[in-house]
Design a protein around this nucleic acid. Structure first.
Length: 420
DNA sequence: GACTGTTTAGTCTCAT
DNA sequence: ATGAGACTAAACAGTC
């Protein structure tokens, strides 16, 4: 359990994405999120809903799961990779679907959402049951797993209750010191498997990229692909061998499992990797991605040095420049910053106002899947929020403000706008 | 007694 | 094949 933080892959989604395969989707959605809300009369999704933006790698603000299910991509037939997707699957109201988030992820979500730097075990329970209906009806043994995770996972530290504080048990928080271990390089993480994208989805992107949709098409703005993005998609396919990776047989044989209830099955079925991935795509919408989601999206987002990101997030005084060779970026690669496509050269912008620091390194020989990192306001909050009270709490927000989520400061925003 | 926290053991999946 | 990570289950002790 030395490096059990690997369960926190979901945080990766908040930060940098390097692959052009996603940039058009994300950048457009960011740009048009408000339009989307206006047209559909819904709020942007902030909860771990299934089959929404995250299904195609849409990074969302960390937020409390909400009951308002947004059809999002599932409104388009066969759009989501790996088969079909339910019209609406909502973790908050659907008691049959077990969240694919690891317990560690759930705990982190609960702590982050608490607006406090430390929370009690019961608060964690409460948040999980409040936001994941599955656990309301599930065997209470999941609480044992939560406790087990808290005790065993090094990224969680217990804060003993003061003597004069009434109540039972201590408090729990995420360990900022854990970042120190990440810097050592001993931290291991699982490699993301090759991405598999439904060719139907790819074709949809192609179709959407054509100017066949009138202005209201921007309601689904994240599906609008401009010519430049289309080219990037082509390049992406060349790199990933997208078509080769797609196995229609697997998709067909597992699509029926996409949204099947998992309640009652104590063990994952063997060879359910694909089904799990499909479930992740279909169900999960949170920015807090599951372990399965990166498997599907891995090639899209790349594997960057998550260690350094977390470390930088947990240590305000830690300069990313000091992180060593953790996030090399080929200079000719494009970056994703908060889901926004940024040229790598432009990405060298350092916005102190927004606490976003993007650093590129000149080492071109490193693996492409070790990309970059940055500090996010969200990641900086957990430890200081209680003291300062000035930082926005993304997790507690009931409504996603994608513009806020993607706020990179004026200078970078200008760059992004020009890109969009 | 219920809750909290720790520890151990076993299973499964996935990366190497 | 092997090790790591995640999960589940259980036992146990301490606290309220």
């Amino acid at each position: 359990m030395e490096d059990s933080l690997t369960s926190l892959y979901w945080l990766q989604e908040f930060s940098i994405l390097n692959d052009s395969g996603r940039q058009q989707v994300i950048s457009t959605s960011q740009h048009q999120s408000k339009h989307f809300e206006q047209q559909l009369g819904v709020e942007a999704p902030a909860s771990p809903l299934a089959g929404d933006f995250a299904s195609i790698g849409m990074p969302l603000t960390p937020g409390k799961p909400r009951a308002t299910a947004v059809p999002a991509l599932c409104t388009l037939p066969s759009l989501v990779a790996h088969g079909h997707c339910p019209d609406e699957v909502d973790y908050k109201t659907n008691p049959h679907i077990k969240p694919l988030y690891s317990y560690a992820t759930l705990i982190c979500m609960a702590i982050q959402a608490s607006k406090k730097s430390k929370v009690t075990l019961s608060c964690i329970y409460q948040w999980i049951t409040d936001n994941f209906c599955y656990f309301c009806h599930a065997d209470p043994n999941w609480q044992n797993s939560i406790r087990h995770n808290l005790s065993l996972n090094k990224c969680f530290i217990k804060v003993p209750r003061q003597k004069d504080e009434p109540g039972k048990g201590g408090f729990w928080k995420i360990d900022p010191e854990y970042a120190e271990h990440l810097l050592t390089g001993a931290y291991k993480k699982r490699r993301m498997p090759p991405v598999q994208i439904n060719p139907t989805f790819k074709n949809q992107l192609r179709m959407i990229s054509q100017p066949v949709m009138p202005a209201p098409a921007d309601v689904m703005g994240f599906l609008h692909v401009d010519p430049e993005s289309q080219q990037l998609l082509e390049e992406f396919e060349e790199v990933t061998g997208l078509d080769q990776n797609w196995d229609p047989h697997l998709a067909e044989t597992n699509s029926s499992d996409c949204c099947s209830a998992v309640k009652g099955s104590k063990r994952k079925q063997p060879n359910d990797h694909w089904a799990g991935s499909a479930q992740a795509l279909c169900r999960s919408s949170s920015p807090l991605l599951t372990m399965e989601e990166p498997k599907v999206l891995g090639s899209l987002m790349g594997n960057f040095d998550w260690d350094a990101l977390l470390n930088s997030a947990l240590n305000d005084d830690l300069s990313l420049n000091e992180c060593g060779p953790v996030s090399p970026i080929p200079q000719n690669r494009n970056l994703m910053v908060h889901g926004i496509h940024v040229n790598s050269l432009e990405a060298s912008v350092h916005s102190t106002e927004s606490n976003v620091l993007i650093k590129t390194q000149k080492d071109r020989d490193v693996e492409l899947d070790k990309e970059t990192f940055l500090e996010t306001e969200f990641l900086q909050c957990p430890w200081t929020e209680e003291e300062t009270g000035n930082h926005p709490d993304f997790l507690s927000m009931s409504t996603v403000n994608i513009n806020q989520l993607f706020d990179l400061g004026g200078s970078l925003s200008d760059v992004i706008d020009s890109k969009i």
